[in-house]
Amino acid sequence: MAGTLSVLFKKNKQLNTDELIRKKTFWSFFIFFCLIISAFMGWKLLQQQPKVNGVLRPFKNVMAANEQVFNKILSDKHLAKEYPLSEAVPVPRVNGYLGMGNEFDASQWSLIVVRKNGDTLRVSLDQIKKLPKKDLVFNFKCIEGWCQVSHWAGARFSDFISAFGLQDESAFKYVGMSTPDQQYYVGIDMPSALHPQTLLCYEMNGKPLPMNQGYPLRLIIPVKYGVKSIKRIGTMKFSDNRPPDYWADKKGYDYFSGL
């Protein structure tokens, strides 16, 4: 045993082949096990990190870094593929009920837009319907992993901005939208909101939106997962800080969620 140990610290030149094999094997495995132990310690350390919005802080930071990498390729020229009408499903899946409470009174509804100076602008559905109508048949993608080709129609968000003189507001970095009952809310970066396929949507399959799909007005934003396509928009606000976002604030999902 003593012979074995002394071998470990001798110079290679002093050793015969057997001793050299023993020495090299020992030190290699020594380092190997040290690395395994440090990997476990690194894992433990990672688990001990504080959570931010339900996510370990290093992951939250990497999400932000990923956004900085991938928002560079976000472009108005990159369009979600559009499909022929015949491929649209007859009944698009309803996957969320937040903000779809029964006590909603449609006759009282108008879209509330909070302007930069704090004034509120009220926009009726008829006013939005007067804007150029865009039909969009695209593959709606849920963050859960399913997708569905579905048919929607409405006014482009960018047309809405220019028609209602909201250029100053669209200079902010984000737009936040919430349901009339405030139960559901999303925040969206302005370049994604102004993408030519982002719609203030009032029709599904050529008919007014059903109640459970967000009647009278919802968002359809193909450059994001479905969680961002908020149903029944009540209020719209603009800011440079990230507006509250239900799934990102409470449930640990990526705020950007860009596709």
Binding site: F70, L74, H78, A80, K81, N139, C147, V223, L259
Partner: peptide
């Protein structure tokens, strides 16, 4: 899968999102 719209060509190359 991560960026099916921005990298639509790549997604199409593999036969689409699904």
């Amino acid at each position: 899968i991560y960026k099916p719209v921005q990298l639509g060509w790549l997604c199409a190359l593999f036969g689409g999102y699904k």
